[in-house]
Design a protein around this nucleic acid. Structure first.
Lengths: 112, 112
DNA sequence: GATTCATATCACCATTATGTTATATAACAT
DNA sequence: ATGTTATATAACATAATGGTGATATGAATC
C-alpha cells in the first residue's frame, strides 16, 4: 500500500543517488553534468535518474537534446511524514515505557 | 564510505520492517510477538530483525529462550543528519536559484 | 547531408534481497 | 528424561538491483 515510501527510502539507500540529489540541491543539471563526478557509464546514471524520478524525488524538462533535472519540491514529503508519525508514536509511548516494561515483566513472572 | 546511511535507508525501504519499527515504538517485543501480524514465516521475520539490527535501528536482549527487541535510541540519527544537511544545502541555494538558472541559461545561449 | 552530442534503451551478467522449508539448539514445562 | 517453545541458521528458488557494452534517436553543429 505505501509503495511510494518504499520507493523513496529505497532511492535514498544508494550513495550515488544521494550524491546526485546533493548536486541538484545547488541547481538544475543535465545528465552528463550529473554523470561527470562518477566512475560510472552514462547508462548507469540514466538509470539512477529514472529511479529518482519514479521515487518522486526529481523531475526532468526537455530542452533540445538535453534533459535537465531538478529536485522535486515535495520529494521528501512522504519520508518526512513517516518520520514525523514514527517520532510522535515514540514520544507518546516513551513516557510510559517504564510502565509498559513493568507490565510485561509482571506478565512473564505470572506465567511462571 | 557512508555505508551506515545505505543500511539505514535500505532497512526503511521495506514496509514489513517499517511496521516492525512502529510496533516497537510501543515498546519491547519478542520475535514471535513481532511475527504474529504478518503472513510470513518466523525465519523471514528473524531476517528482517537482523537487517534492522545491522542498520542500527534496533537492539536485542537475551532473556532465557527469548530475544526481546527494542528500538535503538540513536537509530535514526544518521538519517536525520543527512536530511538536515540536505535541507540546509537546499535552503542555502534556493535563495539564488533564479540567479543560478539565469547564469546557466546565459551560458547555454553563449555557446550558440 | 554528415557528424557529433545528449540521452535512452536493450541484452546481458553478477550480486544482493526476500521468501520458503528443513533442521539445529537451548530454555522451559511436564 | 521428554516434549514443546523460541529462535537461529542453512540450503535453496526467485526476483530485484546495479553495473556493462552496443545501439537507437533526435538535436546541434560543421
Amino acid at each position: 500500500m505505501n509503495q511510494s515510501l518504499d520507493l523513496a527510502f529505497s532511492a535514498l539507500s544508494d550513495a550515488t543517488r544521494r550524491a546526485i540529489l546533493s548536486r541538484l540541491a545547488i541547481g538544475e543539471a543535465t545528465v552528463m553534468e550529473l554523470a561527470a563526478p562518477f566512475a560510472m557509464t552514462q547508462p548507469a546514471i540514466s538509470r539512477h535518474l529514472r529511479v529518482l524520478e519514479e521515487a518522486g524525488l526529481i523531475t526532468r524538462r526537455v530542452e533540445g537534446a538535453k534533459r535537465p533535472c531538478r529536485l522535486a519540491p515535495k520529494g521528501l514529503a512522504g519520508i518526512d511524514e513517516w518520520l514525523g508519525l514514527f517520532r510522535r508514536a515514540l514520544e507518546a509511548n516513551y513516557s510510559r515505557l517504564d510502565e509498559v516494561l513493568a507490565i510485561q515483566a509482571k506478565r512473564r513472572k505470572d506465567k511462571n
